[in-house]
C-alpha cells in the first residue's frame, strides 16, 4: 500500500516512495512545495518543510 502524507501548503496528498528514508526530500505534485521526511513509523510518515536553497549550496 502506498503511503501518503498531507501537503502542509495546499493539502494535497503526497505519495511517499516505498524506499523513502528519514532525511529524504519529497515534493508536492500539486504546489511544488518541498518537504523533508522527518520520521517513518508503522506506515505513518511525518514531514517538515525542507530547507530553502542558500547561496552556498552546491558542490
Amino acid at each position: 500500500m502506498t503511503i501518503t502524507a498531507k501537503c502542509e501548503e495546499c493539502g494535497a496528498d503526497i505519495a511517499i516512495p516505498d524506499d523513502a528514508i528519514v532525511g529524504e526530500i519529497v515534493q508536492c505534485k500539486e504546489c511544488s512545495s518541498e518537504f523533508e521526511v522527518s520520521s517513518i513509523a508503522k506506515g505513518k510518515v511525518e514531514l517538515k518543510p525542507a530547507e530553502v536553497a542558500e547561496e552556498d549550496w552546491g558542490e
Binding site: G23, E24, I25
Partner: peptide, 11 residues
C-alpha cells in the same frame, strides 16, 4: 554526513 539527502547519498 548530510543536510539534504539526495539520490547520491542513498547510492
Amino acid at each position: 554526513t548530510f543536510d539534504r539527502l539526495r539520490q547520491e547519498e542513498k547510492w
